[in-house]
């Protein structure tokens, strides 16, 4: 029983490695699908923007509201903008936005490719002599690699603005003072590792969505399963990559 489960797991890992190698083999191949890539950037980036923007704004807003009373007790109210900015940029922004993206993007890629597989559209593409990995997979993964970090950066900015709005509910703080306080606490060493980690999050979201959709079984139920397992696995990948990235950042940047 245990052996069977282990064999299945090993096979799964093997398939994923094989899929990554097919992706990387096709990235630099002649005939890059620019139009499809831009279309995917539009779908993944622009269409996710409202959700990500609202989430980002509320993150900063809520964090400020929650931390103000405690900080006030310590007489450290002036540290709130800096604290919110650092925690949003270094950790909460990338992780929460990537988890939101995993739910929005990985599921839609999983469902779209899954239904294409069920309707034999991927087979039709392959049989016509075209390259479905180059057209469907490479474009989506690259679009995720580019758009998830950009979405995160925009959400970070909106979160800091959300913090400013929250500070002004109970007090009267000028925008320039708030942003001065916030950015003086943030260094390049906070932004860069977080940005690099979102590139990996973007890859994970695109890859898992494509892998689950592309390898879904036949039948309508498998489309739902592909979308569901894409979200679950992409979220797990994001959290695991985050743990590794934070550890690496601590070793490289802060020691």
């Amino acid at each position: 029983m245990l052996r069977k489960a282990w064999n299945k797991q090993a096979e799964e890992i093997g398939n994923q490695v094989f899929f990554i190698s097919r992706f990387s083999h096709n990235v630099f191949r002649k005939g890059f699908e620019w139009n499809e890539f831009l279309r995917q950037c539009y779908i993944i980036g622009y269409r996710s923007f409202p959700l990500v923007a609202i989430t980002g704004f509320i993150l900063g807003f809520v964090m400020t509201l929650q931390s103000e009373p405690t900080m006030k007790d310590f007489g450290a109210l002036s540290f709130v903008p800096g604290m919110v900015a650092v925690s949003i940029i270094r950790e909460i922004g990338p992780v929460i936005i990537s988890l939101i993206c995993a739910g929005k993007i990985a599921s839609s890629i999983g469902a779209e490719l899954g239904s294409m597989k069920v309707a034999e559209q991927i087979d039709a593409m392959e049989v016509s002599g075209a390259n479905p990995i180059q057209f469907l997979v490479v474009t989506r993964i690259l679009a995720c690699i580019i758009m998830v970090p950009l979405l995160t950066l925009m959400a970070d900015g909106l979160a800091i603005f959300g913090g400013y709005v929250a500070s002004n509910i109970g007090g009267n703080l000028s925008l320039s003072l708030y942003f001065n306080k916030a950015f003086s606490a943030v260094g390049f060493s906070d932004l860069l590792p977080a940005f690099i980690k979102t590139i990996f999050f973007g890859f994970a979201i695109g890859f898992v969505g494509c892998y689950r959709g592309y390898n879904s079984n036949r039948g309508a139920a498998s489309v739902g399963l592909a979308a569901n397992s894409a979200v679950v696995n992409a979220s797990l990948w994001v959290i695991v990559i985050d743990a590794i990235a934070v550890q690496l950042t601590n070793i490289i940047v802060y020691t």
Binding site: M116, E120, A124, E126, V127, S128, G129
Partner: peptide
């Protein structure tokens, strides 16, 4: 294989048009 597939046409049951 790609060259072979150009010479062989395959009509799928559903038509398999790209949605």
């Amino acid at each position: 294989l790609k060259a072979l597939r150009v010479k062989v046409g395959f009509l799928f049951q559903s038509g398999a048009l790209y949605d």
